[in-house]
């Protein structure tokens, strides 16, 4: 999973740069700065950023926002479920932070083709840090023809330092939306 920026194609870096732009938008709205873009055939077809504070729904991660945009768009265009599944199977996700367990499970359910992420998420990560949902089911064909977890290709460490520094800045300035008692402002760096 380890990857170094030197190995990345210019496209990969460009898409990750767009994801970081999304993370900065989140930061501007006082949200935890995580952003993503979804790419199909070399084109960005959706972007998303964290909206957990605004919605008061802690599941509104950047990935979920972008996925919802696509589902709505494709349904408006009259695509069937099978066609949508086919679409997702050709999509690449670029996200600034490793997808959490929930998002990794969602990406597996949708059957995404590939995920590239920035920094690892050692509290919640579902693509290697805590669980390894990108590997799919560890017990293949356990039950008779019932579809098991789908895996996806996953590459981490792309522009990780930029992603981390956004998060660090956010936490250092203190999360003004965190309920009291929240962490003291600008006293502690996160890790």
């Amino acid at each position: 999973m380890a990857s170094h920026e030197e190995d990345c194609s210019p496209d990969t870096l460009a898409f990750m740069e767009l994801a970081i732009q999304q993370a900065k938008l989140a930061m501007d709205s006082l949200e935890v700065p995580v952003g993503c873009v979804i790419v199909e055939d070399g084109k960005v077809i959706a972007s998303g950023r964290n909206r957990t504070t605004e919605t008061r729904n802690a599941t509104r991660h950047a990935e979920m926002e972008a996925i919802d945009i696509l589902l709505e768009h494709w349904q408006k265009n009259g695509l069937s479920k099978l066609e949508v599944a086919e679409k997702f199977s050709n999509c690449y996700l670029y996200v600034t932070c490793e997808p959490c367990i929930m998002c990794a499970a969602a990406l597996s359910i949708l059957g995404i083709k590939e995920v590239c992420y920035g920094c690892a998420n050692d509290k919640f990560g579902g693509c290697g840090s805590i669980l390894s949902l990108h590997l799919g089911s560890s017990e293949p064909l356990k039950s008779h023809g019932v579809p098991q977890g789908k895996g996806f290709k996953c590459t981490g460490g792309i522009m990780a330092s930029e992603a981390v520094s956004l998060l660090r800045t956010f936490y250092e300035q203190g999360n003004p939306n965190a309920p009291k008692p929240h962490r003291p402002l600008a006293q502690q760096a996160t890790r």
């Binding site: 979920m64 996925i67 919802d68 589902l71 349904q75 069937s80 479920k81 099978l82 949508v84 599944a85 499970a105 969602a106 597996s108 359910i109 949708l110 059957g111 019932v146 579809p147 098991q148 977890g149 789908k150």
Partner: peptide
């Protein structure tokens, strides 16, 4: 129970235009 099966289930209610696998 079968989260990965969403694409196999054709619309249960034919007149519904909105669906969401998640």
């Amino acid at each position: 129970l079968y989260p990965w099966r969403w694409s196999e289930q054709e619309l249960y209610m034919p007149n519904s235009s909105c669906w969401h696998p998640l």
